[in-house]
Design a protein around this nucleic acid. Structure first.
Lengths: 348, 348
DNA sequence: CGATGAATTGTTAGCGCTCACAATGACCTC
DNA sequence: GAGGTCATTGTGAGCGCTAACAATTCATCG
């Protein structure tokens, strides 16, 4: 542990010790080719000896590059946002960028505006916003900011570059799977109205039913929490025996609540009602019963998001398009097939 | 959206437009008292008009303060680390600091060393390490770094300032609760050996039993995952009828796996075996049955961690002590009392 | 009415680094 | 051996800001 309050050594100090000019030290640090091997070694020794580290502020001042990206997120203790955050940081670090994060409790215009200001003070070169609500996207579109912004987690909406998972396809996969299993229709417990993902999943569900000439049953809404799923589950339990045999729930946490409500109502899963979730959180495999769900590749979202943002920062034309959609994947478990006792993905 | 590639306006540009010196602009921005009201207004108008923002690098260079803190974490998609991360960022932002994060997959010496280097390049003034493994703490103690480091999540260990929840107390609370409910003894499924938290929880469990003159039963180990809990649960099921009526599981995710294994083995919870978890993840309330568990105040950990780090950075003597422990809290649900159908904390 | 001090504003000097360019010297070529 | 090339190193300027000090203005008072 070495943290003296004295002024840390500068490049000039190192240069003096190594008997060269400060510029030569800079060249060594910058891996400039034209430095004699012996000189380089001497400089490196001096750096080591003094415990020298380049002053990032001075460097940033002259290069006009802070190599720092910002991320704005909310609900970061939930699996989805947490995974996205992780993926973004990892991808950014691989490109040599630092990531500064702001985690909001709510994505209101005021909070978003403050967050962007805060990050701006931190000197970020660009920002990724994990903004799954449409209202947040709209707010973002209105805000002025001196750097490029990429949205992650909301599909096409306003005119801001975005990366997201193809939620519509996810909804089709889930619904199609249930129909293929022989169910006459599929009910849906959706997420909050304002969420783009919720809307897209619901749209995928509705269109799949309509493509089969089926009239979609009443749509229920939750707020992503297990509690809201539990309440919806109680309502759903009342429809068992009146045509309800399959439910597509818009996320795994709500599905957990639904499973509990059904269980408490004496409804068996999957014999009486099959349930499909969305997200594939690590716990899903161990629910009662293990949950069939739709897995999203957050890592890909993170990589694409960072790549897109860097394109924008560098002024390059964005790689392919600036509206990137990533394919989700169905994971079948016991909550839809009574005889699939275990996961098909991670066999026990 | 305003991000031109032209050089952004400088303080001098603003000064020219406002008809003052750049220093006066600096004074306005710094809320210096001795600026005439009319001048201040003129400067603010010019700032507004040009969309001026202070260059943080130039500022940091001269003040020698980046107002940036670093956080190193791993397993950030898990509830505990994610909550801690969130709390740390929120606390730091409240103090006007930016937070740069590095999320590692494993806390090896190499990864930690690279992480600290990376953050150092980012110019952090100090770092909070969410390092629950003892090996990580040891590694941290050996690493040289030019800024103070605070550890969060590992109790007293090496000579590094730390903030953590009193895991030992948590273990006592859980075990005491089961004994008070009339169980003759309590089994324990612990976390990985290397984790300080796991060791502390196990120690609390063991000492509570020993204080009652009881010989602690065989200790089982998992890796925090539901899968490892499931496997341990299968083993535990074999001991039912041979003195096993209560299990204290070191986290909620493993408890989920235990519950599933018991259920599959035809063992009822809590009638045959009572189960207590640890963490109080949002899902716990909806497990089958709802899980009695120990809740940790991550928000307090975050605030205290940041406060401690800032004390160190400012060179102040740390507020009280540099070994802070925060009290956890028992949350009783149906997995220990058959007749408590619902949570006592969040009534449905 | 000129002196006194407080309020307000301006001037100058770096912070530590990179960039552009200049200088040096070794080594060729004709 | 004069001129040219290349590799290597040094010099000077300036990035945009704040801190210290200097200068100016203005109200106040003996």
């Amino acid at each position: 542990m070495t943290h003296t309050k004295l002024r840390p050594p500068t490049m000039a100090d190192v240069a003096r010790l190594a008997g060269v000019s400060h510029q030569t030290v800079s060249r060594v640090l910058g891996n400039h080719p034209n430095v004699r091997e012996e000189t380089r070694a001497r400089v490196l020794r001096a750096i080591e000896e003094m415990g020298y580290r380049r002053n990032s502020s001075a460097r940033a001042l002259v290069t006009r590059r802070t190599r720092t990206l910002g991320v704005v997120a909310s609900d970061t203790t939930l699996y989805g946002p947490a995974s996205t955050l992780f993926a973004l940081e990892e991808a950014a670090r691989a490109e040599g960028y630092i990531v500064s994060t702001v985690s909001l409790r709510k994505l209101t215009v005021e909070e978003l505006s403050e967050a962007l200001d805060h990050l701006s003070e931190g000197g970020v070169e660009g920002v990724v916003a994990i903004a799954p609500q449409r209202s947040a996207v709209d707010a973002l579109a209105e805000l002025r900011h001196p750097f490029p912004v990429v949205i992650v987690g909301s599909g096409p909406g306003v005119d801001i570059p975005s990366v997201s998972v193809d939620q519509h396809l996810g909804g089709r996969l889930a619904t199609g799977h249930l129909l293929a299993a022989g169910h006459r229709t599929v009910w849906h417990l959706a997420g909050p109205e304002d969420w783009q993902e919720a809307a897209d999943r619901a749209a995928g569900w509705r269109e799949t039913l309509e493509a089969e000439g089926l009239e979609p049953p009443m749509l229920l809404r939750g707020d992503w929490s297990p509690l809201s799923g539990y309440r919806a589950g109680q309502e759903l339990a009342g429809w068992v025996g009146r045509g309800l045999t399959a439910v597509f729930v818009a996320n795994d946490q709500m599905a957990l609540g639904v499973l509990r409500a059904l269980r408490e109502a004496g409804v068996r899963t999957p014999q009486d009602v099959a349930v499909v979730g969305f997200d594939d959180i690590p716990e899903s495999e161990f629910f009662a019963p293990p949950l069939t769900t739709v897995r999203q590749d957050f890592s890909a979202v993170g990589r694409r998001g960072i790549a897109l943002l860097l394109d924008l920062i560098e002024g390059r034309p964005p790689a392919v398009t600036s509206r990137i959609a990533i394919e989700p994947q169905l994971v079948v478990r016991a909550s839809t097939f009574p005889h699939t006792a275990q996961s098909e993905c991670v066999p026990l």
